[in-house]
Design a protein around this nucleic acid. Structure first.
Lengths: 146, 146
DNA sequence: TGTTCATCACACATGATAATCCATTTAAAG
DNA sequence: CTTTAAATGGATTATCATGTGTGATGAACA
């Protein structure tokens, strides 16, 4: 469905928000451990998120990544997916036909559009904050999910 | 969403059914041209479908691939997707968490399950025959869709 | 019986994604 | 001012999906 990079990005954002809530900056090392993602690759993905302005970073000792409560409330999974994977998941023809569109639909076009619309809606209405809330106290480390 | 191989497989099945309806056997060359897929790769995908028993093939001169009307009515897109891509699309965690399941769900689990269920339902209720009917007379070559 | 047209099987090549490595920059702490 | 901890950026490698090539096999036809 999504690329690995995108999956790591979503997990990372949730973890960054959690750590920010706890009053610290999140380091690549800590994020990678908590989310079960490779450290170097996580760093790459985080860079993309920072460059796009989705999360903040502070360099140097004591630095790390952060996501303010206000931003975590605004930032949706759709934003993250769009940032890493682009909008291909929502726009590309399900059968891979390059010239398929509303006016010249492939036999699956309508049904696919409906499913993808739901996916998009689901991502658009789910904020990073929602994810953190869902996690709750039970999964103290996120690690528990692995 | 699906692999290229899977997209080609679905397109190929539709074309095979069309040609069978017209009373011929479908050749790799013809299928590849009609569906706009690379010939050698199409051949490979068709082999998988044949081995799995989803379509029939006859070797030698005058041979090719066929899909009887009865089979085309039974054969669903879900069968094809399962044959080529497996069931990962429907079972894998949306965030890529290996230990995510119903009893230990990730924050997105429920919502994802709902969307994937719809996708699955959509594929399960769409037969190759349905696809051929949708195409209709207007797109005589399938090629028109490209 | 040999030529031709077709699938079949397997090896090979290419390209994109995933993952790693290393040097550089930045900033706090000692 | 040196050490240490951290992000950043570029280059490199690994893995896998995608795509190609080549020979073998089978069946019809002349």
């Amino acid at each position: 469905m999504f690329s690995k990079a995108c999956e790591y990005a979503i997990r990372a954002c949730v973890q960054v928000a959690r750590v920010t809530d706890a009053g610290h900056h999140a380091t690549v090392k800590g994020i990678a451990e908590a989310t079960g993602a490779p450290e170097a690759f996580t760093a790459k993905v985080l860079q993309q998120l920072v460059r796009a302005g989705l999360v903040d970073s502070i360099r140097g000792r004591g630095g790390g990544f952060s996501l303010s409560p206000a931003r975590a409330r605004e930032l949706t999974l759709l934003d993250i997916v769009n940032c890493i994977d682009g909008d291909g998941v929502f726009t590309r023809c399900g059968l891979g036909l390059p010239h398929c569109n509303a006016s010249r639909p492939c036999p699956l076009h309508e049904k696919f559009a409906e499913v993808r619309g739901r996916l998009r809606m689901m991502l658009e209405t789910t904020s990073v904050r929602n994810m953190v809330d869902q996690l709750g106290e039970a999964n103290a480390g996120f690690t528990g999910l692995r």
